[in-house]
C-alpha cells in the first residue's frame, strides 16, 4: 500500500446537502510533495471534496487524514469545535473570492493565524508575515488594506496567509476564477513556485494548461465521483472515460477556435 507515503488520504467520503448527494464515496490519496488537480463540470462536487479535506464541510460518512491526523466521520456525531480547528490549522486553504479580512492590513491578514491560533508573539508573527509577503512579491503592500489591492494581489496575500500556518498541505479552490485574465499569471506563478518547493497541494481548477504543467495527478470528477484519475498527460491528453472526453472537448474546441482565429 502507498498509504504510508500519502500525505492526504480520503476514504469513502460521502456528503449530502439536504436531498442532494454531492459526494458519493470518494477515495483519494495524495502522495507527499505531489499536486493533484481536480477538474470537472460545475456541480460535480470538486469544491465540496476540497472543503471536506480540511473539514470546512464535515462529511457524513468516511475518513479524512492529513499528515498524521485523521478524523472519522460518523453520521451521528459532529467532531468537536476544538478538534476541527486543530485539524484545519494544519491544512491551508485558498479561496476563489480571496476572503481576506477587510478590517486588517495585508500584514495583519497574514499574521492573524500565527498570532491568534498559534499564540505566537506579535513580533515573531510580524517578522514571519513580512517574509511571506516578500515571498509572494508584496512586501511593499504590507500595510495596505485589501480594498486597495488588485485581485491578483489579494489572492497572493491569501496564499501568504495560508502559508503562515506552516500547513502540511494547501488546498486551492478555483483561485484564479474571479481574476481578470491579466492577473491570473502572477497567482499561478506563486503556486508553481510552491509546487516546485515540494508543497503537497490539491487544486480545483479550470486552467487546463496550468493543471497540465503543474499537477502530478489529474482527477476528473463527475456527479459526485472520481471517474478518471491519472497523470496529466493521460487524463488531459488521452482520456479513456467518455465523460472526461466530452468535458475536455469543450476546452479543446476553445483552443482550436483560438488557434483558427489568430
Amino acid at each position: 500500500m502507498t498509504t504510508a507515503a500519502a500525505m492526504i488520504e480520503v476514504s469513502d467520503v460521502w456528503k449530502a446537502f439536504g436531498a442532494l448527494q454531492v459526494l458519493k464515496g470518494i477515495t483519494l490519496e495524495v502522495p507527499r510533495g505531489s499536486a493533484v488537480a481536480l477538474i470537472g463540470p460545475s456541480g460535480s462536487g470538486k469544491s465540496t471534496l476540497l472543503r471536506c479535506i480540511n473539514l470546512l464541510e464535515v462529511p457524513e460518512r468516511g475518513r479524512v487524514r492529513v499528515g498524521e491526523h485523521a478524523i472519522d466521520c460518523e453520521h451521528e456525531r459532529l467532531p468537536a469545535d476544538r478538534e476541527l480547528a486543530a485539524f484545519r490549522a494544519r491544512t491551508g486553504m485558498v479561496f476563489q473570492l480571496f476572503n481576506l479580512f477587510p478590517h486588517m492590513t495585508a500584514l495583519e491578514n497574514v499574521s492573524a493565524g500565527p498570532r491568534y491560533v498559534k499564540k505566537a508573539s506579535p513580533l515573531a508573527a510580524k517578522e514571519q508575515a513580512m517574509t511571506l509577503l516578500d515571498k509572494v512579491g508584496l512586501s511593499d503592500k504590507a500595510h495596505v488594506y485589501p480594498s486597495h489591492l488588485s485581485g491578483g494581489q489579494r489572492q497572493r496575500v491569501a496564499i501568504a496567509r495560508a502559508l503562515a500556518m506552516n500547513p502540511e498541505v494547501i488546498l486551492f479552490d478555483e483561485v484564479t476564477s474571479a481574476l481578470d485574465p491579466e492577473l491570473v499569471g502572477e497567482v499561478l506563478d506563486v503556486i508553481r513556485t510552491l509546487a516546485e518547493e515540494g508543497m503537497t497541494m490539491v487544486l480545483v481548477t479550470h486552467e487546463m494548461a496550468f493543471a497540465h504543467e503543474v499537477a502530478t495527478t489529474v482527477a476528473f470528477m463527475s456527479d459526485g465521483a472520481i471517474v478518471e484519475i491519472g497523470g496529466p498527460q493521460q487524463v488531459l491528453g488521452e482520456p479513456n472515460n467518455a465523460r472526461t472526453q466530452a468535458f475536455l472537448a469543450r476546452f479543446h474546441s476553445f483552443q482550436r477556435s483560438f488557434a483558427g482565429g489568430s
Binding site: 470546512l56 484545519r88 491544512t91 479561496f95 481576506l100 479580512f101 491560533v117 500556518m165
Partner: peptide, 15 residues
C-alpha cells in the same frame, strides 16, 4: 467566506 477563511486558518468558533 469570512467564516470559511477564519476557520481555515484554525480559528475556533469564538475566535
Amino acid at each position: 467566506g469570512q467564516w470559511d477563511a477564519a476557520k481555515a486558518i484554525g480559528m475556533r468558533h469564538a475566535q
